[in-house]
Amino acid sequence: MKKIVSFFGLFLIIVFCCSNVSQPGIYNSGGTAFSMLFPEDSLAYKKVQMQEESIYIQLYKGYAVVKGTYKMVNTSSEKLSFRMGYPINGIYNGGDHHLNQVSLDSIYKFKVKSNHQNVEILKSKFEDTNEVMTFNNDNWLLWKMNFLPKSINIVEVYFIVNTNNAQITKGYSSANFNVFTYLLESGKVWKQPIESGNFIVELKDDLKLENIQGISDHFGFKRVPNKEILAGSKINFSPKPEDNLIITYSETVENFNFETVLQNEVTLYHSIDILSKTVLPFNLEKFTSNNPYEIKTDALAYLPMILTLAVIYLPVILIGLLLFVIFRFVYKKYKR
């Protein structure tokens, strides 16, 4: 009987320890989202339309450089003034059919222009007040925007992200790749729809398109002939979690020195400016890749199923053992 009790106790310990499986998803991904923040600005939310957005991404070994160009239209007859922001880091639900989370790492060397004029950036941290948060994050890069009635503002942003710290998890399996994330779903706060979205991805550092492990497939990415460039687009859409752009590529770089990368800010931004001005040909070629959330599973990935079966059948086994012990005890006593 003592052996049975000991076995049952050991089983409970195993279940308790193994039940803390990581939330499936992508963690510490390099990337960001674009949103508004304050409740007093909320009346402006649906008066400004992000009519067009063009996102240029250059993927390097261990990091990515991004330029975003947004055509923002004040559709009202009012003068609008509000604060806009980029979250420095935070957590979003992923767009895969499984429940996923995407955890964003920090962004660096952030710059913003409005109608080609530099805009002052204020890095802010908010306490637990009544700010309108689009996701779990209290660190933002903010700037003030002013719109004349029926006017258009061209907003340009530049930033660098570390893609080398990412981890993809699914069940008990995990993999370490470089991961870049651009979360379109944050654009849902603007007046809808976004009429046009263009997404250009270029691989640098001698990386090839074949080094892409997985990429979101709802952008219709095609490759530019004889170049390591992908072009994708979306039209007339109201962004949802499944519209987010996730790219997994290359291998984790050992002893990666990100500080050295940040010292090359001027050169890197010049390079992405060149990409943003490049006219792409019409004869693009087909490109296919894997689901960025998919990773190879190991034996531990089947552990939850094994534990579930054990929980279902263990009571039956224990009752059977208990009946056997009682029967044996009664039998021996009767035999005497």
Rank of each mutant, 00 (worst) to 15 (best):
V261S: 01
E294C: 09
I152G: 10
I55V: 13
F11M: 03
H218P: 06
M145F: 11
E254G: 05
K123P: 14
I272M: 02
Y249R: 04
G197P: 07
N283V: 05
V179E: 02
V155Q: 13
M1R: 06
Y158T: 07
L37T: 11
F135V: 07
V179P: 06
E294I: 09
I91E: 09
S77E: 15
K333C: 13
G214D: 03
N198W: 10
K204N: 11
I200V: 08
V65F: 01
T248L: 01
I152Q: 09
Y182Q: 04
I194R: 06
Q51Y: 08
E242V: 05
I194G: 04
A299I: 10
S77L: 15
E52W: 07
F221W: 03
Y27Q: 04
S216L: 07
R223F: 03
E254R: 07
A64V: 01
A301K: 13
S186L: 06
K79S: 12
N118V: 14
V21H: 05
N146A: 11
L43E: 14
Q213M: 09
N28Q: 06
H218T: 13
T69V: 15
N264V: 08
S289K: 05
Q58Y: 04
G95K: 01
L142K: 12
P149T: 03
S35V: 11
S151E: 11
L318I: 03
K234V: 07
R223D: 03
F258L: 03
S151C: 06
S174W: 01
N28H: 03
K170S: 13
I88F: 06
S124M: 14
Y70G: 08
N176E: 08
T252C: 01
G90T: 04
Y63W: 05
G95Y: 01
L209W: 04
L321N: 07
F199C: 10
F16V: 14
L99R: 13
K113S: 15
M84D: 13
K170L: 12
Y293A: 00
V21L: 08
I160A: 01
S114V: 15
E285G: 05
F327V: 08
I168R: 05
I57F: 02
I235K: 10
V5K: 11
F329Y: 15
G90I: 02
Y269E: 06
E53S: 10
M84E: 14
